[in-house]
Design a protein around this nucleic acid. Structure first.
Lengths: 144, 144
DNA sequence: CCGATACTGTCCGTACACGGATCATCCGTA
DNA sequence: TACGGATGATCCGTGTACGGACAGTATCGG
């Protein structure tokens, strides 16, 4: 049993490695096409709040699948840049009700075309059929 | 043009989101099956050094596709825990020659079965054929 | 031999990402 | 109503991840 040449652990056979690399690709494309004004996570928060205003951080964390600690950080940054606003809920004093500011909505709309372009650039090496397959398999893997 | 109901930006249609979620899955499985002694990046470094001793940080960054800053941090941590050792190259005083310590090799071997299990657990929702397809498409996306 | 150039590693700043502890608040029930 | 458990948010610590600036070293051309 494999007496010659160390196991070598082929990285290209490790799903975790490929996924990490894919995320790198995504981030590189993002930097190139969207720029540094918004990160992908920040964009996701803005997009979610555009659709569902007054969401609290916890449900935001749930729907975006981000840790609540991270959501807190991200929201603090966005609020500091006046892209979102946080008000305490009158009904439940623990909650923040988050909503977009005018600046936030403008940033969201300004960058949306580039964000779509990132997705396309990422999948550019694949045919239409392969793109659908990849997306479907990824959804299965994450159980969505 | 889309006069009703905001665009909503379907996250499940965004490759970046799916990839981020997949990496979360991976990390969750890793924590569950491997534990917290080694992160996946640290494991990758150890595995690489087991195969190719005396690699310098730059080539390590290249083959693992990790930023050189990050590699420096990771190696510092691993060296601090006596899992790897760093010696200045006599030929080129800029370089560090990295190699596994006995402890490092032991940790690598101790965790290798669990790491393999992480990969399988991650792809568990897919058939054998689908797994191969996913891996192939991911390799295409990252250009490898 | 020396200067321009390239390269290795470090440092700083920013931004996720997550677990665990903590605190305030809410709520169901005794 | 009072209390115990659940919940929303924060805080702390650790670990990626990357760009940009920097210092020290190597190397090549003149």
């Amino acid at each position: 049993m494999d007496q010659l040449s160390a196991p070598s652990f082929d990285l290209l056979a490790a799903p975790g490695h490929l996924i990490r690399r894919a995320q790198q690709q995504h981030q590189a494309r993002w930097a190139e096409l969207v720029g540094s004004e918004l990160t992908s996570v920040q964009f996701a928060v803005l997009a979610k709040l555009a659709t569902d205003p007054d969401t609290d951080q916890n449900t935001l964390a749930g729907t975006l699948s981000i840790d609540t600690s991270t959501v807190a950080e991200v929201c603090l940054r966005l609020a500091g840049r006046d892209l979102i606003a946080r008000r305490r809920s009158e009904a439940d004093a623990r909650r923040y009700r988050l909503h977009l500011t005018a600046r936030g909505r403008a940033a969201l709309e300004r960058h949306t075309p580039a964000v779509d372009a990132v997705g396309e650039a990422l999948l550019a090496p694949l045919s239409e059929r392969e793109r659908a397959t990849l997306m479907r398999l990824l959804r299965r893997v994450i159980g969505a």
